[in-house]
Design a protein around this nucleic acid. Structure first.
Length: 280
DNA sequence: CGCATTTCCTGGTAGC
DNA sequence: TGCTACCAGGAAATGC
C-alpha cells in the first residue's frame, strides 16, 4: 500500500511529466460524485505548477486551486489507461494524459481552493515530514508526550509525523525495539531518538528501492517497488526474527495486522487487556 | 476536543 | 467446480 516512499516515488516521476502542462479536461469515470472527487471538473483550464508531496498526499498547485490526490490502498497513476478500475482521466496539453486507477475505491482525487484543507482533516493536521529537519528528536519527544494511544496507532494517525503506514510502522518499531502497544507517552526517553532514526532509515532505504509492492502498488512507469524483499517483520509472521531468531508474532492492533518480535520488543509496562489483542 | 469504533470497497483465498 | 466467508487497511464519518 502506498506510504511515503511509494508516494514520493510517484511524485518524482510525475513532476517532470506534469509540470507546466494545462489540464484540458478532468473527468470522473465510474466514480461517485462525492467528497472524494469534489470539484474535479474545475481543474479543467488550469495549469499544473508542480507536484508536491505532504505525507501520503500528492498536491498539484493549479491557478487558484490545488488538485489533491490520495492513492488510498490501491491507487495507481499512469500516462496510459488501465485495463480495469479507471476512476479519473485528465487530458493534458501537449497530447498527454494522466489516468487514475483505483481498484478498491479508497483513493481521493479532488480539487480545493489553495490551502483550503477543511474537507481533509488528516492533511490539515499533518505532522512534520520525517525526512525534514523539523522532525527533530526534541519535537518528536514533545509530540509523543501528547498521547496515551498505543505508539503504533499514534504513528498511523499522521499527527506526530507524516507518511507512515502499516508496513513502515511495524518495521520502524521493530528496529527501535519498541512494542507497538506501548502508550506513546510511555515510550522510554532513551528510545525516542532511536525510533526517530529508525523511521528515517526505513523510509530512506525503501525510497531508494522505489518502495514496497505487496499487490497493487506500481510506479508511474508501471514498475514494482523493490523493498518487499528487505522487510524484516511485515509479512513474516512465524519466521525467525532477523536479530534473535525468535518467531515473529502477528497481533491485531486497532484493526490492523501488526508484526513484532516478542523477544526484542518488550511489552509495555502497563499491558492492555488481552481481549484487545488477537494472537494468530 | 480526543479517542474508539465503524464504514467504505474489491480481489484473493481458504474451506467445504 | 462453485459457492460462501473472511481478510487486507487509509482516512473520513460517526459515536461517546
Amino acid at each position: 500500500m502506498p506510504e511515503l516512499p511509494e508516494v514520493e516515488t510517484v511524485r518524482r516521476e510525475l513532476e517532470p511529466y506534469l509540470t507546466g502542462r494545462t489540464i484540458l479536461k478532468a473527468e470522473r469515470v465510474d466514480a461517485p460524485d462525492g467528497p472524494k472527487y469534489a470539484n474535479l471538473a474545475r481543474a479543467a483550464g488550469q495549469r499544473i505548477a508542480g507536484v508536491i508531496r505532504r505525507g501520503k498526499f500528492l498536491i498539484l498547485p493549479l491557478g487558484a486551486d490545488e488538485l489533491i490526490i490520495h492513492l488510498g490502498m490501491t491507487g495507481v497513476l499512469s500516462p496510459s489507461p488501465p485495463a480495469r478500475h479507471l476512476r479519473v482521466r485528465l487530458e493534458l496539453s501537449g497530447k498527454g494524459a494522466l489516468y487514475f486507477k483505483d481498484t478498491r475505491r479508497f483513493g481521493r482525487f479532488l480539487v480545493v481552493a489553495a490551502g483550503e484543507y477543511s474537507s481533509l482533516p488528516t492533511l490539515a493536521a499533518l505532522g512534520p515530514e520525517p525526512l525534514d529537519e523539523a522532525f527533530s528528536e526534541k519535537a518528536f519527544a514533545a509530540a509523543l508526550e501528547r498521547s496515551a494511544m498505543p505508539i503504533k496507532s499514534y504513528l498511523l494517525s499522521q499527527r506526530p509525523v507524516a507518511g507512515i503506514g502499516n508496513i513502515y510502522a511495524d518495521e520502524a518499531l521493530w528496529r527501535a525495539r519498541i512494542h507497538p502497544l506501548t502508550p506513546a507517552r510511555e515510550v522510554p526517553e532513551h528510545r525516542v531518538g532511536p525510533l526517530r532514526d529508525a523511521i528515517r532509515e526505513v523510509l530512506t532505504a525503501s525510497l531508494a528501492a522505489q518502495g514496497t509492492t505487496l499487490n497493487d502498488y506500481r510506479t508511474v512507469n508501471g514498475e514494482v517497488g523493490g523493498y518487499l524483499s528487505e522487510l524484516d517483520v511485515y509479512g513474516h509472521a512465524g519466521e525467525p526474527c532477523p536479530r534473535c531468531n525468535t518467531p515473529i508474532a502477528k497481533i491485531t492492533l486497532g484493526g490492523r495486522g501488526t508484526h513484532l518480535c516478542p523477544m526484542c520488543q518488550a511489552p509495555p509496562p502497563t499491558p492492555s487487556p488481552s481481549r484487545e489483542v488477537t494472537h494468530t
